[in-house]
């Protein structure tokens, strides 16, 4: 009898272990940490059926958990079981910066999350007004007055500018409080501000219309439609490269999937493979084009390496971020 009970217990234990290791046949929940109708949730809903297709999961559901600019959903994920059944999708740079800037609401450590793959990203660009006397980044460095930077608040563009200004020795005056990129763009076009940072897609129409001029991109490589615009990595000195590389890596991670810390290795592998396969599915690629949600995928392993570099550089970045925040308070 004792042997029988022991056998039953062993079988149960083994099945539990096996179940915890694989997501096959399980229901996977993707926490979309942004608004229900927003871009992030639209991405998550578009990709979820394809993760189901390649992971063997019984179902992949999207659960919207809005709040605190992605913090609420990520806090929830932080305390989830690391069995692969709960993962999240949001703007990764926002999470990292919220943590590095010491936000009181953050309960997670973004560097310990397990990154599963990036769905999309786009280079950020520093643009100036078309009538501005600043023609390139050197002009911004040699201005005889502060470079006026209209900002919508303490977002990734604000912190990116803080790091750029620090390493390029640009005296910056941040005017914070603008109501979104439209508002900062208008300030730059009017001449109220010297320049602002946005994604290329947000600035493309304004640049095409001739109202703004790009002078620097924050990306690993030059942006192909504008091959004459240098990247931030090209214009910094070697000793400052680490900080800028960390910011570029962070911005590069943009719309990504990630799991809780200590995510089961088998579940991690299965999810990374499934997410990667989903991004190569011709049907999803076609659907993303139709929906206006472009994909620029990257593998989970590569994203995890970027986090390592960000962690290494955090000692250099954190004092800059704190000083930038202190300056506008």
């Amino acid at each position: 009898m004792r042997l029988l009970l022991l056998s039953i217990f062993s079988v149960c234990l083994c099945s539990t272990i096996v179940r915890a290791e694989s997501i096959e046949g399980e229901v996977v929940t993707i926490l979309s940490a942004n608004s229900a109708g927003g871009m992030m949730t639209r991405y998550a809903r578009m990709i979820a059926p394809y993760i189901k297709k390649y992971s063997g999961a019984a179902d992949v559901r999207v659960r919207v958990m809005t709040g605190g600019g992605g913090i609420r959903g990520t806090n929830f994920l932080w305390f989830s079981e690391p069995d692969g059944k709960t993962i999240a999708f949001t703007s990764v740079p926002s999470l990292i910066l919220a943590q590095l800037s010491g936000s009181e609401a953050v309960q997670f450590d973004a560097t310990r999350l397990v990154y599963l793959g990036r769905a999309a990203t786009e280079p950020r660009v520093l643009t100036v007004g078309a009538t501005s006397s600043i023609l390139n980044i050197d002009d911004a460095r040699t201005l005889d007055r502060p470079f006026i930077f209209p900002s919508q608040g303490t977002d990734e563009d604000f912190y990116s500018m803080a790091v750029l200004a620090n390493v390029l020795d640009i005296e910056v005056k941040v005017i914070s409080g603008y109501d979104g990129h439209s508002d900062t763009a208008l300030a730059v076009i009017k001449g109220d501000g010297d320049g602002h940072i946005t994604g290329w897609s947000a600035s493309e129409a304004v640049i095409e219309a001739g109202d703004e001029r790009p002078i620097l991109t924050l990306s690993q490589e030059r942006y192909s439609p504008y091959p004459n615009i240098p990247t931030a990595l090209e214009v910094v000195e070697d000793d400052s490269r680490q900080a800028v590389q960390a910011i570029v890596n962070m911005l590069d991670m943009r719309r990504g999937f990630f799991g809780p810390p200590n995510l089961d290795p088998i579940a991690t592998e299965e999810l990374r493979v499934a997410i990667s396969a989903a991004f190569n599915d011709p049907e999803l690629i076609e659907q993303s084009k139709l929906a206006g949600l472009p994909l620029l995928p990257s593998d989970g392993n590569i994203e995890q390496q970027k986090i390592g570099q960000i962690t290494e550089a955090s000692q250099v970045i954190v004092p800059i971020l704190e000083a930038a925040l202190h300056a506008i308070l």
Partner: peptide, 20 residues
């Protein structure tokens, strides 16, 4: 919620719901 200028949380009493 968050102050629109500096992003400083105000009157949020540690609640992420109120942070928004």
């Amino acid at each position: 919620g968050m102050d629109p200028v500096s992003g400083t949380p105000r009157f949020w009493f540690g609640s992420i719901y109120l942070l928004d």
